[in-house]
Design a protein around this nucleic acid. Sequence first.
DNA 1: GTGAAAGCGCTAACAC
DNA 2: GTGTTAGCGCTTTCAC
Lengths: 343, 343
Amino acid sequence: MAQDPAQPRRSRRGSGAVTLHDVAKLAGVAPITASRALKTPGQVSPEVLKKVTEAVARTGYVPNLLAGGLASTRSRLVAAVVPTISGPVFLETVQSLTEALAESGYQLMLGQSGYAGNREDALLEAIIGRRPDGIVLTGILHSAEGRRRLLASGIPVVETWDLTPTPIDMLVGFSHVEVGRAVARFLHAKGRRTLGVVTGDDARAGRRCEAFQAEARALGLGSVPAVAVPAPTTLKRGREALAELLATASDTDAVFCSSDLLALGVLTEARVRGIRVPEQLAVVGFGDLEFAADVAPALTTVHIKGAAIGRQAAQFIVDRAEGREVGQRVIDIGFSIIEREST
Amino acid sequence: MAQDPAQPRRSRRGSGAVTLHDVAKLAGVAPITASRALKTPGQVSPEVLKKVTEAVARTGYVPNLLAGGLASTRSRLVAAVVPTISGPVFLETVQSLTEALAESGYQLMLGQSGYAGNREDALLEAIIGRRPDGIVLTGILHSAEGRRRLLASGIPVVETWDLTPTPIDMLVGFSHVEVGRAVARFLHAKGRRTLGVVTGDDARAGRRCEAFQAEARALGLGSVPAVAVPAPTTLKRGREALAELLATASDTDAVFCSSDLLALGVLTEARVRGIRVPEQLAVVGFGDLEFAADVAPALTTVHIKGAAIGRQAAQFIVDRAEGREVGQRVIDIGFSIIEREST
DNA sequence: GTGAAAGCGCTAACAC
DNA sequence: GTGTTAGCGCTTTCAC
């Protein structure tokens, strides 16, 4: 179609998309009225509402949330930071977070910090620049500089999957130290006396491992050998780690693994070597991933309510964004040991 | 500190954050000059660059990308839509997509469409409203209405993990039909004569399954029984499905599973039942997840270059955003059958 | 209930 | 190389 010659060319800027202005004109009202019809329908008359609704349908108008966010200083965007998305551990949390936010009309922006911390700064800048209504930190070790910038930004922050005495803002997690202790006591109660650990090399796994070793010592079980594997933890590394552990401590009768995937590797390697689980070797995982209940033998593991963490984080942020004051800012969501055949 | 009484209260609007205006004032230049110093340092004099850089450091200025996006109609945001993030299949793609985009200064926004299609509309609205510079559709079945809205939005779209004769815009994927055929031929060549299928109930898995069955028939292997399991595919469902399959076709000597997790379930159930793999039963998975190579017996499976898909999708979108015309808009990235012990 | 005016913080366009 | 002006599309404020 030819351009209307009576009209000068449309302003040289802009995306060319339908704007609230267009909708308002079509409906015969002021832009602000059209805005109200969409945001707070109760505040406009039924006729206006009808006309605006029709205009929206006719034009296919989609509000520009960039403009809305700029004007209202509420972006309805929430950023989540994970070390890497392919670590299956946080997936459940990210999924429930995405869903819970979507229900409240918020969108999730995903950032990967990587296991190395070098990208963290650029990532934070990219995140803060979007002026999200909240930031969820998932299992991340942030630098002091990063903490400072987050604090300075004034954006609500939820730290998850850990407990710290000095949270940046809000927090929902559990004690890794308690996990390590509990598993040591559990295995001791089961009559195991020669423990071992296979652990990923991230900070939280490290704390579980140390607490496990300390508790074992306190229980009179002597020193517990640990095999550290580089992140990410995989089935393969679990197999290799068991081989390494048995090479130096062949009488080991129980292994605590820092992830279910490592534990599955340990189970696999044990089977291949003809080591009977649980008779000769007890195996405990961490995470209670979906497969844990259904491998053979079924895996005893530490269950974390990942979805609940995500939901609570969303709740924290939405509450804050809607101006509700959150009472409890720190929530210890706990954990539980799910006993199955592998012990 | 007390408010400066000489100054009227700061404007009642705004976030209170440091703006480019503040930086420019501190550096003694106009805002646009400060902007240029940050975006295109080559265009300003060394002195100006120095002063602006210092002002940024002193104030802790972080550019407001909402405002920048609005003014430039380039949001530097890319949306990705996956059915659910916890399906491990697309993880690799999402991860490499996130990384590749981050390298070019783009941020990923994540949306879950769910396996049911009802949320799709609201999701599309939320996405289009942010005016992303691109949208990556991952393994999604979009409604005709959704297609229309995407097309109307004018936002570059990359469809992935599939091939279609009528792509919305750009595409990087492979043929599920060819996968089904290839696996049937592979098993036939291995001397297997009584095939079975365990398949998730999504559309792409369905097409692999049908092509597998058709090819088997063409090879003279008769009709192939299929067990369909609801999404998401899990180890547990794999175990159940093998049980179901054997109940009606106990002489099955090869099973093609629509995911590695299902295949792992089949391997597990076979072991528990004393069925030897591969001697009595061959098992083929799909996805070549990290664990496939290291389970025992190691899993033969269909490998998809998930990371390459993510990188190519990022490339497509960044090229388009930077105004480069992409030559090839449809890329068949292919697949390969990785032969391991399970066949 | 509705509207006019004035920005939100930034950048495109066009001077100089 | 630097600055002025005028928006981007929306919402806040305040008036009617």
